[in-house]
Structures are given as structure tokens and as C-alpha cells.
């Protein structure tokens, strides 16, 4: 069953000039059909301004389509009476770790969502404990968020969403402001949630290495979905991705260079281990 189902989804907004009169209309998302299956790990790629963040905000009903429809777990996001249920079904993690942590203590922040849901205190505590353990931040429950590293802050933010027991989590460039170790921490956490808790994940990112293990990759450009497929399929199109201001994993890039020089390597090699295996095969054929 599709947990997220968008049909001809478009979002337009007006750009105002200095006097506040409409100057031009910008179509940030343009006729997108979107289907995400429950339990999937879906990655969305696209350069800055490609419309992927705008699309993401629709899933949490922060934005509603100006044309077309979007259903989250069978609920129409334009239906205001269901908005809180939609937000509980689809949690959202944002880019800047500092700007989404509300509590001055880690556990208080994780409890924020369940508090809004009006849950009794004991139940909130249980959820907070479960969520902090799920992201590996339980030992830090009594710390101030300000003293944590970027990766740790993002894990707290993820726990804050997990505590609401969403079926789906949308992460809008959660690793953009982190160092490589922080990025790994966050991606590992998200992958684990997907595998162990079967939470549907939509990960928006600029880092190709984070996408390799996704079930499905969606590439956006100028508000449209321009490519869709498995990572292997997507990363077989090195030139097209480059033309869309994107990149491919380093292993794919090396393989691509070698292909250009005439080595008969298969398309869509994603990891260095895979590449080494393929090269070994080639050497075997020769020797």
C-alpha cells in the first residue's frame, strides 16, 4: 500500500516586489506523481532550488498543494481537520539542528511532540526512553542540547519525531551541516529505524554516498521528478546526473572513468568493494 500518494502535485507561490505587489509566480513543484510504499527507504536528490524541500514540506502538511492532491496514509493533506493526524503520521526532521530543538534539556525536547498529543505523563516518559534508546542518545538525556555535537543534536531531533510514533519520517537535508562522522551517525540511525522499526523514510540529501542503500531514488529538477529507480539504475546515468548539478559516488566515478578508457565494467557500480570484485573478474578473464 502506498503510504504517500501524490497526483499531479503542484505548488506555486507569488514573489512580491518591494511594494508588496505580485511580481512573478514561481512553480516550485510542478505536476509531481509520488508513490512511497510503506516500509521503504526513499532518497530524494536534486540541486538547491530543485523543489525537493518544498515537496518534503507537503508530506507533513506544512504546505498544501495549490494543484493536485497528496494523500498521507489515506488522508488528504488539504483537509484541515486531519492536519494533526497527518503530522503525527509523517514526522519531519530539518536541516539546522539548532533550529528544531525546543527543549533546554534533551529529554524535555523529545517529550515535546507527545506533550502536544496530550498524552499522560507516564506514557510520555516511556516514549522518550524508547526513542532516545532507539537513536542511541539515552545516556545524554539530562544534557543541554547546546553541549552536543551536530550529529548528536540531529539524533535528538530524530528521537523527538520518533517519540510521536510516526509511520513515516521525512528528513530534509539532515546531514548538510554536519561533519563526515556526524553524517555517518545520522544516516546509520535512520537506516536502523527503517530496518528495525519498519518506519518509512524519505531522505533528502546532497551526499550521494548516503543514497547507495536506499530502496528507491527520486531525482528532482525544476520542480519535476526527472528520474526514478534503484540506486543502481540512477547512478548508471553519470552524465545526466552531472548535467543536473548532481554527482555520483566515488566508486561509480572511478568505474565510469575506467569505462571511458574502454574497460568493460558493468554500469551502476556503487561501492569500492563491488568495484574491486569486478576488476578482479576482469583480471581473471585476462590471465
Amino acid at each position: 500500500m502506498s503510504i504517500i500518494r501524490g497526483r499531479k502535485l503542484s505548488y506555486e507561490y507569488q514573489r512580491l516586489d518591494e511594494e508588496g505587489n505580485p511580481e512573478s509566480t514561481i512553480r516550485a513543484v510542478d505536476g509531481v506523481d509520488l508513490d512511497v510504499q510503506e516500509g521503504d527507504f526513499v532518497a530524494i536528490l536534486g540541486h538547491n532550488g530543485s523543489g525537493k524541500s518544498t515537496l518534503a514540506k507537503h508530506i507533513n502538511a506544512i504546505l498544501v498543494p495549490t494543484e493536485g492532491t497528496l494523500y498521507v496514509d489515506g488522508k488528504d493533506t488539504r483537509d484541515e481537520s486531519q492536519i494533526w493526524e497527518i503530522r503525527q503520521t509523517a514526522g519531519m526532521v530539518f536541516q539546522n539542528p539548532d533550529n528544531q530543538i525546543i527543549g533546554t534539556i534533551v529529554d524535555e525536547d523529545v517529550g515535546f511532540g507527545p506533550e502536544n498529543m496530550g498524552m499522560p505523563s507516564e506514557a510520555i516518559w516511556k516514549r522518550v526512553e524508547e526513542s532516545l534508546k532507539a537513536v542511541g542518545m539515552w545516556e545524554y538525556r539530562a544534557h543541554s542540547p547546546n553541549k552536543l555535537s551536530g550529529g548528536q543534536k540531529q539524533r535528538v531531533a530524530i528521537a523527538g519525531v520518533v517519540a510521536m510514533r510516526p509511520k513515516c519520517i521525512v528528513l530534509d537535508e539532515p546531514t548538510a551541516m554536519l561533519d563526515p562522522n556526524g553524517r555517518k551517525e545520522v544516516v546509520r540511525t535512520v537506516q536502523e529505524l527503517n530496518r528495525k522499526e519498519h518506519v518509512t523514510v524519505l531522505l533528502i540529501t546532497h551526499y550521494m554516498e548516503e543514497v547507495i542503500e536506499a530502496d528507491k531514488v527520486i531525482v528532482m529538477d525544476q520542480g519535476k521528478v526527472v528520474m526514478q529507480g534503484t540506486p543502481k539504475e540512477i547512478f548508471s546515468h553519470v552524465e545526466e546526473l552531472k548535467a543536473r548539478r548532481l554527482d555520483v559516488p566515488q566508486a561509480t566515478l572511478v568505474a565510469y572513468e575506467l569505462q571511458k578508457k574502454g574497460l568493460p565494467l558493468p554500469d551502476g557500480i556503487l561501492s569500492m568493494a563491488e568495484l574491486a570484485d569486478e576488476l578482479e573478474k576482469l583480471r581473471g578473464q585476462r590471465g
Partner: peptide
């Protein structure tokens, strides 16, 4: 910018004012 981000993050986590809200540490 931070205020804007924070307001969005709060809404995304279901915040709608004090009404109907419970306390984790009452």
C-alpha cells in the same frame, strides 16, 4: 530565520498552543 525554522519545527511536531497539551514533567 531561526524563529521561522523553529516555528515550522514546532508545528511539524504538532504544537498548537497550550490547549490540550500535557506535561512530561507535571
Amino acid at each position: 530565520r531561526r524563529a521561522n525554522d523553529l516555528a515550522m519545527a514546532m508545528e511539524a511536531r504538532g504544537y498548537r498552543g497550550g490547549e490540550g497539551r500535557t506535561k512530561m514533567k507535571p
